[in-house]
Design a protein around this nucleic acid. Structure first.
Lengths: 153, 153
DNA sequence: TGCGATTAAATCGTGTGCGATTAAATTTCT
DNA sequence: AGAAATTTAATCGCACACGATTTAATCGCA
């Protein structure tokens, strides 16, 4: 790490922190989604897992983890709950018994339609143009990429 | 929720979701901070509480909750851990026994210096100019504000 | 004054997240 | 082929996060 910070040692203001802005925005998103997803019987991470499966069915726990940046210690119980709710099926892969393949059950596939309303509701509430949202998403992904890449140092 | 979304019903791609970009960025931030804050014996939310107290000492649980968007059910055990670590003191307010005032202990005040390095390390890793970070923070706060305001509907 | 309403924390139960470890299957390398 | 290394999930423990409820103190109003 360089010393680019050592010139300016004034105590940081909470609202200036990028990390805090992210923290708040993430929480706001969570609180927004919770009641809407609650009607579907889903939590927010469960919803993300389903979005990933709607896009590409029959993924292994590891594949889902890579997509969502989660590990098996988080995914396993979450997936068991989705399985318990009858939304997905967990089966060990035939060719490699170490892997567990997660695939959609009919009931899980049906939620796809209903969830559109949730995403649309958020889009409306934010009131940003698709372009601005796209730009913001790119900026965020840039930060995410830089932070993830910088972790190993 | 209105039906203004019903025109465009193409299945959303996971990476297009603003909520998912936030989710990832927040997690990346968490994973980045965790080992650094771990050296100080802090978790990320504990760090945020201390930042809030460094800025303004002797706040009530409710005040901290408003700043951090957290409720007493989250803050109380967190604050008890900070108290157990000798970083803060919790005392019922003299004029209103319902409130609990949280104030910094010397050891908690000292961490302020050390934490500068953590924030600086993140700043470096991200590699964005202060202006760009400021813009991003504003955009995020705009989204947060819109989402929070839209929740009551 | 006193009693109901309000407010502020704390408590409880469920569901993530994650570091560390474990268990089982597969691959690698002699 | 067979032991060691690697890979993949699962398990365990701890710390948030939050809806719902509880408890205690204060306020408001007749």
């Amino acid at each position: 790490m360089t010393d680019s910070h050592s010139e300016k040692h004034q105590p940081p203001h909470l609202d200036d922190f990028l990390c805090f802005a992210l923290y708040k925005a993430h929480h706001a998103m969570n609180r927004f989604y919770k009641p809407l997803l609650g009607e579907l019987g889903l939590t927010y991470p469960q919803y993300l897992v389903l979005v990933a499966l709607w896009e590409q069915d029959d993924q292994s726990v590891g594949q889902l983890g890579e997509l969502l940046h989660l590990e098996s210690n988080t995914l396993t119980p979450l997936l068991k709950r989705l399985e318990g709710a009858g939304l997905v099926r967990r089966r060990r892969a035939a060719n490699d018994e170490r892997q567990v393949q997660v695939s959609l059950m009919p009931e899980g596939r049906e939620l796809k339609q209903k969830s559109w309303d949730v995403a649309a509701c958020l889009f409306e509430t934010i009131g940003m143009s698709r372009e601005d949202i796209g730009t913001l998403v790119e900026d965020l992904n840039g930060v995410t990429g830089a932070v993830v890449a910088g972790r190993g140092r």
